[in-house]
Structure formats: C-alpha cells, structure tokens
Design a protein around this nucleic acid. Sequence first.
DNA 1: TTTTATTTTCAATAAATTTTGAAAATAAAG
DNA 2: CTTTATTTTCAAAATTTATTGAAAATAAAA
Lengths: 164, 164
Amino acid sequence: MNYEEGKHKFIQAWGALGSSWGINKVMAQIHALLLISPKSLTTDDIMDELKISRGNANMNIRALMDWGIVEKELIVGERKDHYRAGKDIWELARQVSRERRKREIEPILKVLGEVQDVKGKSDEVKEFKTVTSDLKDFSSKIDGALDKFTRSDKNWFFKILLKL
Amino acid sequence: MNYEEGKHKFIQAWGALGSSWGINKVMAQIHALLLISPKSLTTDDIMDELKISRGNANMNIRALMDWGIVEKELIVGERKDHYRAGKDIWELARQVSRERRKREIEPILKVLGEVQDVKGKSDEVKEFKTVTSDLKDFSSKIDGALDKFTRSDKNWFFKILLKL
DNA sequence: TTTTATTTTCAATAAATTTTGAAAATAAAG
DNA sequence: CTTTATTTTCAAAATTTATTGAAAATAAAA
C-alpha cells in the first residue's frame, strides 16, 4: 500500500469512528491529519488536504483546541498559524476522558441526583427511584475510575489493564 | 419534585446523553422510558408517552432490540407486542460494551492493521507508521480490557474498579 | 498610519439525519 | 377463507447539523 492510500484510509476511518462517538466527522479527520503529520500544519494545508472551506477548517480546529487535543505552534518568521496534535496516544485518551467526564458524565450525574427526591410511593415511583439510583451508583463508579485514569501514571495503568 | 416532572427530566437527559455518544435521541428516550417502567410497554404506550409516530417508535424499538438491550415479552391474552428493558445496569453496560466493541473497535483495529504495510522511508511515512502503530497498540489494550469486562463477574469487577 | 495578510464570524445553503404517515405485509380471530 | 388487528416498510417531508464563502475583525508589515 502506498502512503497516500494509507493516509486516506486512516483519515476516513478516524472520521467514521468520530461520527459514531458523537464527534463531528471533519473534526476527527483534521485530528487524524495532524496526528500523522511530522510537522505542524496551517489552515491552508488542512483545507487542501481535506478539501474543505476555510470557515469549516477554522471552526473545527478551534473545537479541537477547546478539547485540548490540538495546539497552536508559533513558527518564527511565518505569518500563518500552525497547528499540531500531541502524538502520545495515552495522553490523548486521558484528555478525551477528562473532557467527556466534564461535558457528559457530570451533567447526567447532576440530573440523576436531582430526580432522587421525586415524591410518591406508587410502583412507578419505586421503580423510577430504584433504576435512577442504580444508574447514579454505576455512573459514579465509572466517573471515579475515569478520574483515577486521568491522573494516573501511564505504565502503572497499563500494568493494571493487562492484569485484569 | 413530582413523578411526571422527574420522569420527563430523566428521559430528556438520557436522550441528550445518547446524542452525544452517537445514539439516536429517540432511541435513547425509549430506552429510558422502558428502564423506569415497572411493566412492559406497547408501541402505542411509547408513542403516547414520547409523542412520536408509529414508524419512528417501531424503528427505534427494533434498533434497541438489535443492540440487545430491549426485548419482546409475550403477554398472554394480549394481541399487541410488549417490550421491556433489562433493569440491571451492570448488564446493560456489558451489552453496550460488547456491541460497541464489535461495531466500532473491531473495524478501526482492522484498518490500523492494514495500513501498517505502507511502503516508504520518508519522514511522513515513518511518522504515519509510528502513530498508527501506537494507536493500534492502545486500541488493542482497550479492546482486551473491554473483552474481560464483558465476561467478568460483576462483583469482581467492581472490586477492581474501586481498588484502582 | 496605511496596506496587506490572516483569522474569525455568521447568514445562507447544502447535506445528512430523523420523523411521519399511509400503504403493504403479517398475524391472529372469527 | 374473510375480517380485523397489529407490525413493518419506506418515500416524502421536516428537522437538525454541517458547510460554504464572503464580509468583518484582527494582526502584522510597510
């Protein structure tokens, strides 16, 4: 397989994976492109590679920076902004966990906490409280585990993972 | 908070969470509804509760059954099909892991394997191979851990989770 | 300051996804 | 078999989400 073919395949697959995990396809593709690029890229580079507009590129690059997985790199003597993605997959996973915890787990835990004080003793209310309470317990445990994960040492965690 | 209010809040939140994890909002809402319902529900029940059309209800119920998290329950003397969701959150998480592993992790692992034989010795190719290989290693580890998770005993896993 | 390069914004448009509703198919009852 | 109830399908419509492109804003150079 030649490089262009492999690159294309990887970028497409990463985009598709993003989509099924609730991440904009182009955002995931830009990330894929930066991941495999040995040097940082400009907005124009990204527009050319992915055949997308300036506005689209700009907005998705910003979203990637908001997620904390892409950053600007200042190149001396260059006017244009350059962007790069961290190459450490472990660090990437950590950052994504951190963000998703904050954006998605925390809000649902909040709701699950709030609905605990529903009033009544009917079967419906009993079932509602049991299920939402179980869900809250489970989510809290996952949340705690992810918190540990995002703070832990890489090698220690891999050891645990393999020991499972 | 009264029951109707709590139910509504939970169903909305569960739908929103589904959306940000790549799951159709209505599908997640139907699941939420079945989760908290003490008895199995018919398509008409679901249509009424969520104010959706028959076609929409039918398709999303089917999707939930394809995911293996909702099943038909035959009620003697009743013509209409009844549906119920399992109440064990641990079992739910296991089933979702199983499905996502099959639907999303396996395909990306396949691609990451395929692109390993890209030819060339340029910096670009080197970087491409390093990153995709790292990604493959990491994904395989996660895949293995999820596999263990989906096979493991509930209590054993919770103990591990808390020990972390 | 003025000019030029670059980035950002956002209304308009396009594309993708979801939803509807009615017809067709299936299944149970008479 | 015929009638009635129920489920499924799917083309069309509605809605949501993503994308464009050009104008406005910002920043650097002259």
